[in-house]
Every structure is written in C-alpha cells, then in structure tokens.
Computed example of a mutant assay.
Amino acid sequence: MTRPASARRSAWRPSPALTRLATPWLAWALLGLGTCGFAAAWITLAFFNGAQNSWMAVIGALDIAWMLRLGGWPRGPRRVAIGIFATACIVALANWGVIAAQLGLMLGLAPWESALKLGFHHAWTLAQLANGAWDLAWLALALLVAALASR
C-alpha cells in the first residue's frame, strides 16, 4: 500500500514554506550575535594584553562563516558578500572598542563611555597609528578567509 507524497515526508523535517518563514530572523540574529560577540571578545583580549591582536580578525571571519552556515543562509555570492561585510564590521567594531578602551583608561572613563564620546576622525587617526603593516596584512587575510569560508 503506497502512502501519499505528503505522508512520506519525514516527521522531523519542517515544510519548505515554514523554513522560508522561520529562517530570516534566526539567521540575522545569529549573524548579529556572532559579529557583536566576537568584537566584544577581541576588545576584551586587547584590553587585557595591551596589543591590537589583529590575528583575531581571521578567527572572526571563520566564526562569521560558521554563523552563516548555522543560520541557513543559502550558498552563493550573497552569502559571500554578507560574510565579508560582517567581518569588516567585526574589524571596525573591535578597532573602535580597543581605541575607546585605551582612551577611557587614560581619561578615567569606562570603555563604553569613551566609545560614545569618541569621534570618527579621532578614531581614524588613532587606528592608523595603532595598526602597522602586519596588522593590515592580518585584516586583509581575514577578508580573504571570509570570502572563501562563506562560499
């Protein structure tokens, strides 16, 4: 006796219509959590050891690629572009946070207070002074890793 096609579907797998509706909020939540969480970890490490730790950008790129896969983002150029953008956001947030934490330490402010008072031009100048050639190489490698791992 043959069962209809709808009954042959496995009980543990949701229907495609339900998956299309449920994926976007979870995917965006995982991406946001991965981006902000990793930037916070990078800032914390840099605050405690006093270095830029630009090698963390490569690990952040791998973390974002993992979050994209966990979130169910479909393969293709869109996922690659989102992976590169999220990695660039991690780098920007981490650099902003490291600069704010170091300035806040000197001025007697908490890192989040300093981050709110830090201006773009001041942050850009300090980021150029703090990031050397090796740091820029790590950041460029992170973007390449993000592109390859997010495919």
Rank of each mutant, 00 (worst) to 15 (best):
W28T: 06
W25K: 03
R8A: 02
P14Y: 02
F38W: 15
A17E: 13
R13P: 00
L21S: 12
W12N: 13
L26E: 07
A29R: 11
A27F: 05
A22M: 08
A11V: 14
A22K: 07
A27G: 12
L21I: 09
R8E: 09
T19C: 01
A22P: 06
W25R: 11
W28A: 11
A22V: 03
A17Y: 09
G32I: 04
R9K: 12
A27P: 06
G32D: 04
R13D: 02
R20I: 01
W25S: 11
L18D: 01
R9H: 07
R9I: 00
C36A: 15
S15R: 14
P16I: 00
A17W: 14
T23F: 03
R13C: 00
A22R: 13
L18F: 08
G34I: 05
R9N: 06
A11G: 01
R13V: 04
L30K: 10
A29Q: 12
R20V: 02
W25P: 07
L33C: 09
P14K: 00
A11S: 10
G37F: 14
A11T: 13
R9S: 05
A29V: 13
A11N: 06
W12T: 15
P24A: 00
G32T: 05
S10R: 15
G34T: 04
A11M: 06
L30T: 11
L18V: 08
T23G: 00
R20K: 13
L33F: 15
T23Y: 01
R13L: 09
P24S: 03
G34D: 01
R20H: 07
A11H: 10
T23Q: 14
A29S: 15
C36I: 13
L33S: 11
S10V: 02
W12D: 14
T35H: 03
S15H: 13
F38I: 05
A22N: 05
P14R: 05
R9A: 07
W12E: 13
L30I: 10
W28Y: 14
S15Q: 10
L31R: 07
A29F: 14
G37Q: 09
G34L: 01
P24T: 04
F38P: 03
T19V: 10
A17P: 08
L18A: 07
S15P: 10
W12Y: 14
S15C: 02
T19H: 09
W28D: 03
W12A: 12
L33H: 08
L26C: 05
W28E: 04
L26W: 11
A22I: 03
G37A: 06
G37S: 11
R8L: 10
P24K: 08
P16D: 04
L26I: 13
T35G: 00
P14G: 00
L30A: 04
L31H: 10
G32K: 04
G34H: 07
W25V: 15
L26P: 08
A11F: 12
L26R: 15
W28L: 10
T19E: 14
T19F: 07
C36F: 15
L31F: 09
P24W: 04
T35D: 02
S15I: 00
S10A: 09
